[in-house]
Design a protein around this nucleic acid. Structure first.
Length: 406
RNA sequence: GCGGAUAUCGUCAAGUGGUUAAGACCUCGGAUUGUGGUUCCGAUAUGCGUGGGUUCGAGUCCCACUAUCCGCCCCA
């Protein structure tokens, strides 16, 4: 017996309707805001993610599905996220020459080799947007608005927007050094993970959940909460907050919000649900003003987010299969299939019996799956009519001359 | 990678070492030969995640493996 691999799953039956509904809502919300869909390949050159996502991240270090393409020694990786791919496409197709902003949305599977858990799969789906070419905080506000609108359309509540600014390259590294120097005397008291983070990515220590580490962080609170971001970054951040205030979008400022991907600069944000377990982040994003240049393009500011579709699916009200307009009840398959063909051409959702079931069984099936039954059997064919039975009200009426209709 | 729990039909489940593995839902068939959603009757696991072991006897006890779930880590 061959089974689906660990951390992957089949999405079908009732679940697929929730899925389709989410994808439809994403398409509508994002396209209404002027984002165009982009479908990038599921695999890319490994180098793209090494450079794009950052080599201090867990994603790069232990979670990528990397392999060699057949008959070559070229290293290929299943995409662990989509931002690097979209940036690659942006550069490759010379979209910098187009009038900014360039706005994209996407929906598709990503792959990370992690231990599966509630709301975490190895093949998981993300819906997200990326916007290129606008350095002003208005773009950050637009992107956050887009995320909030989408979640609102899904009917979700119990959500919290968390917001922080990491600063630009200069103040970010200054901040990093200050944190590093502040922590250095306490390094022995910290967990093994944090000792590694200290060397590779000190800012990640800020959201360590280890109690000992938290105690250390309290000791250096004054360093953490001191404003290290430069005047320009500060102005950017303040302006963003005022836009959000004007939009009446509530947010919580969280100095410890750092995010795991290396490419973020200035604005970072997360949207969390209080109704999920430990995998509570449904949306994460921010600004990445250096990434286009890092990947070989012209310096181009950019901002975006990604949402975890499995987590959204767990939060929304369950959806069901749409009802058929008609189920054709007939033991005359030749006539039934022709009637189905005609009605489907008119855009109706129509099914008929394919399993040679008895009349009553067909009607039973109709009552479960359709709004109306079309009754077309021996008697009707003789009399050149068929009957429409409304299965809610049990009202039944005749359509005459059905042979001419076909 | 680390810690904890679980594994009996498509789904939910009873089962506490002793005949033939309850029950419910779903599905299928019949009562109803052309009128459904209610009702009634019937069918459906030679099988209890996989492989070993203990025992006269194992779904039940032991060991290993695998998978799933929950948490850590990380992230969406």
């Amino acid at each position: 017996m061959i089974k689906a691999k660990r951390g992957t799953k089949d999405i079908f039956k009732d679940e697929i309707y929730s899925w389709q509904w989410i994808e439809d809502a994403a398409k509508e919300t994002f396209q209404n805001a002027g984002f165009a869909e982009i479908k990038t390949p599921i695999f890319e050159a490994t180098e793209l993610f090494n450079r794009g996502v950052g080599d201090s991240t867990d994603i790069i270090n232990k979670e990528m599905y990397t392999f060699c393409a057949p008959k070559s020694d070229e290293s290929i990786t299943l995409r662990p996220e989509n931002t690097a791919s979209v940036v690659r496409a942006y550069i490759e197709h010379n979209m910098q020459r187009m009038s900014p902003p360039s706005k994209f949305w996407y929906f598709g599977p990503m792959f990370r080799y992690e231990r599966p858990q509630a709301g975490r799969q190895r093949q998981f789906y993300q819906a997200g947007v990326e916007m290129f070419g606008v350095k002003e905080p208005l773009a950050d506000a637009e992107v956050i608005l887009c995320a909030v609108d989408f979640l609102d359309k899904l009917g979700l509540s119990n959500l919290e927007v968390e917001l922080n600014s990491l600063g630009c390259n200069e103040c970010k590294s200054e901040y990093r050094n200050s944190i590093k120097e502040a922590i250095r005397p306490y390094l022995d008291e910290m967990c093994d993970d944090c000792k590694v983070r200290f060397e590779k990515n000190p800012l990640r220590i800020l959201d360590c959940k280890n109690d000992e580490c938290k105690k250390v962080l309290e000791k250096i609170n004054d360093v953490i909460y001191k404003d290290y971001i430069c005047d320009n970054c500060k102005e950017h951040y303040e302006k963003l907050k005022s836009y959000l205030d004007d939009l009446n979008i509530k947010y919580i400022e969280n100095k410890l919000l750092v995010r795991g991907l290396d490419y973020y600069t200035r604005t970072v944000f997360e949207i969390k649900s209080t109704s999920l377990g430990s995998q509570s982040a449904v949306c994460g994003g921010g600004r990445y003003d250096n990434l286009v240049e890092t990947l070989g393009g012209m310096p181009t500011p950019a901002v975006g987010f990604a949402m975890g579709v499995e987590r959204l699916c767990a939060l929304i009200e369950k959806k069901q299969a749409p009802m058929l307009d008609y189920y054709i009840v007939s033991t005359k398959p030749n006539e039934a299939i022709k009637l189905a063909q005609k009605l489907r051409k008119e855009g109706k959702k129509v099914e008929f019996d394919l399993a040679n079931k008895k009349f009553t069984k067909q009607l039973e099936k109709a009552s479960k799956t359709a709004n109306c039954a079309l009754i077309l059997d021996e008697e009707e064919i003789q009399g050149n009519f068929y009957s429409v039975k409304d299965l809610k009200t049990s009202e039944q009426y005749r359509i005459d001359n059905f042979k001419e209709l076909l």
